[in-house]
Design a binder for these strands. Structure first.
Lengths: 279, 279
DNA sequence: TTGTAGGCGTTATCAA
DNA sequence: TTGATAACGCCTACAA
C-alpha cells in the first residue's frame, strides 16, 4: 500500500496540514516540526501522489505533444528530433515534463482523454482534424505547429515563403541565372501541389522577380535519393543546363549530389545545390 | 470551468453513476439512457478528468521512461531511437502512453515525483543511483535497461558477451586468423576497461578458444572516426597485418573503413570489419 | 436499472 | 503555528 500523507501525519504526531506544509509551505511551520516531519516522511518513503496533487492543484506539470504519426516514426525524423531538443530544454526550464501522445489504438482523441496535461502542442495536425475540435470543446490550451492556426488555436509555423525566397536570392546573388527547382510531389490525400510546396514556390518566384533570369526548369520529385537522381537526369543539357538547384527536399538534394558526382560534376564548382532541412 | 460528470448528469437528468457507467460499463445501462447520456456528454464536451480518474482507479495508463541524460541528447542517439520505436509499439498495444522523464532541474528524483505513472523503465541508470532507491521506497514497479539489476529491480540488457562471441566466430568461420580488436576506452569515471568492454572482450576470447589463431592485435579507440582511423594506422604491417577487425564502436569502425579506403584497401575483399550498433 | 454515499490523496480555507 | 474540514472529479459497492 502506498504511503499517504495521513500515514506520515500519524507517525510524526501532527496533522495532515502540517505534512502538506512541510512540502509546499515550509516557512509556515516551526523549525522543529518541519525537520521531524521531513525526517519521518523520508523514512516512510512518502511522496505526494501526483494524480491527487494534480487533482487538487488543477495542474499536472506536464505538457503533451500530440503526434499524429506513429511514435515509431518520430524518432527517425530529423526535423522532429530537433524540435524535441528545443522543447525539451524549454519545458525543463519551467519544471515541466513532456508527455508524448501518439494515437491510441489509431485514435488521437482517445489518447487525448488519457493524458493528464496542462496543455498540448500539436504537430502537423490537419486543421479539420476531429481531435482539434475535441480539444477546443474540452478547453485544453493548445498550440499548433505545422498547421493552419484558427480562432481557438494559435499556430507556429516555418516561414516557407521567406526561407525559399532567401534561398533563391542567395543563388541569384551568386550570379546564377540558369536555375532548376525540384518541387515536392502532391500528397495522396489531395491533388495539386501541397500548401508547403506552393508557399516555397511563391518564395522562389518572389526572388526571381527582382532579377533578369530565364524561367527556371521545374521538376517534381519525391523525398528520396533515387527521385533526386532522376530529377538530375531530367535536367536540360547544353546551354540551358542549370547551374544551381533549388531543392525542396533534403533527400532529393542528396540524390542530386550523388548523380552529379557520378556525372563527373563537382559541387559547388560546377553546380550549386540549396535545400531545406524540413522533410 | 471544466465540464464535470455532475454537469452531464444534471443536463441529462440522470445520476452521476449513470454517466460514469455510460463511459465505463455501458452494458449496465438501458439503451435509451445510454444514448441520451452520451449525446449530452458530447454536446457539453465532457471528458473524464484524467487525474481524477487516475486517483480513483489507482492507475494512470502511462509508463514513464527515466532518462538520466538531458532530453536533448536522447534523440541523437541511434540506440535509444530504436529502443523507443519498440517501446512505442508495445505501449500502444496496451493502450498506454509513454512519459519521457528527464532530470528536472538536474534531479531525477524531483522528476519522478511529478510523474503520474504506473511504472518506470529506466535507461542506463547507475545501480547505485539515489533515484532507484527512491523508486523502491515509493514502490513503483521499475525495470532497468542497460544497468545491473537488483533484488527489487529486474533488468534487461544486451548480451554483450554472446554478441561479441558470435561476431568473432563469424570472422573465424570465414577463415580469418589474423584478427584485430578495437576496444572501448575507459570512461572518465573509473579506471580500467568498462564493464561493457570487458564483457565483449570475454566474448571475443570465448570464440577464439575454439580456433587455432594467433593472439589478436588489440588497440583502444574512442567512439569517433578519427580514433578509428588512428587505430587502423597502428595495425601491424606485413605478415601480421590483420585481415579482419572486431570493432566495439560503430564510429571507430567507420573511421577504419575510411582509413582502409585511403590506404587503397577494399572492404571486404582485403579486410573484413565487424562492429556493433550500440554506442 | 438507477441513485446514494464513501473513498482515492492532496491542497486550502478557516478557526482555534 | 496547528488542526479539522471541505473541495478537486471520478469510480463503485451497496441499496433502492
Amino acid at each position: 500500500m502506498r504511503v499517504t500523507i495521513a500515514d506520515v501525519a500519524g507517525a510524526a504526531g501532527v496533522s495532515k496540514t502540517a505534512v502538506s506544509f512541510a512540502f509546499n509551505n515550509p516557512e509556515k511551520l516551526g523549525q522543529a516540526t518541519l525537520e521531524r516531519v521531513l525526517q519521518v516522511a523520508h523514512e516512510l518513503g512518502y511522496t505526494p501522489h501526483p494524480a491527487a496533487r494534480a487533482l487538487s492543484l488543477r495542474r499536472s506539470g506536464t505538457i503533451g505533444v500530440l503526434i499524429p504519426q506513429r511514435l515509431s516514426t518520430v524518432f527517425a525524423n530529423q526535423f522532429l528530433s530537433e524540435l524535441f531538443q528545443g522543447l525539451g530544454e524549454l519545458v525543463e526550464e519551467h519544471d515541466l515534463t513532456l508527455l508524448l501522445v501518439p494515437p491510441l489504438a489509431g485514435s488521437l482523441e482517445g489518447a487525448i482523454r488519457q493524458a493528464s496535461v496542462d496543455g498540448f502542442i500539436s504537430l502537423g495536425l490537419s486543421p479539420d482534424d476531429e481531435a482539434l475540435a475535441t480539444l477546443a470543446r474540452i478547453g485544453i490550451p493548445t498550440v499548433l505547429i505545422d498547421s493552419e492556426g484558427s480562432a481557438e488555436h494559435p499556430a507556429v509555423n516555418v516561414d516557407d515563403a521567406g526561407g525559399a525566397e532567401a534561398a533563391a536570392r542567395h543563388l541569384l546573388d551568386l550570379g546564377h541565372r540558369q536555375l532548376a527547382m525540384i518541387l515536392l510531389p502532391p500528397t495522396r490525400a489531395q491533388a495539386g501541389p501541397t500548401p508547403t510546396s506552393a508557399r516555397r514556390l511563391a518564395g522562389y518566384k518572389a526572388a526571381l522577380a527582382g532579377f533578369d533570369a530565364p524561367i527556371p526548369y521545374q521538376v517534381t520529385a519525391g523525398a528520396t535519393m533515387p527521385a533526386g537522381a532522376r530529377a538530375f537526369e531530367s535536367f536540360p543539357k547544353g546551354r540551358r543546363r542549370p547551374t544551381a538547384i533549388l531543392a525542396m527536399s533534403d533527400m532529393a538534394a542528396i540524390g542530386v549530389l550523388g548523380a552529379a558526382e557520378a556525372a563527373g560534376m563537382s559541387v559547388p564548382d560546377d553546380l550549386s545545390v540549396v535545400c531545406r532541412a524540413r522533410p
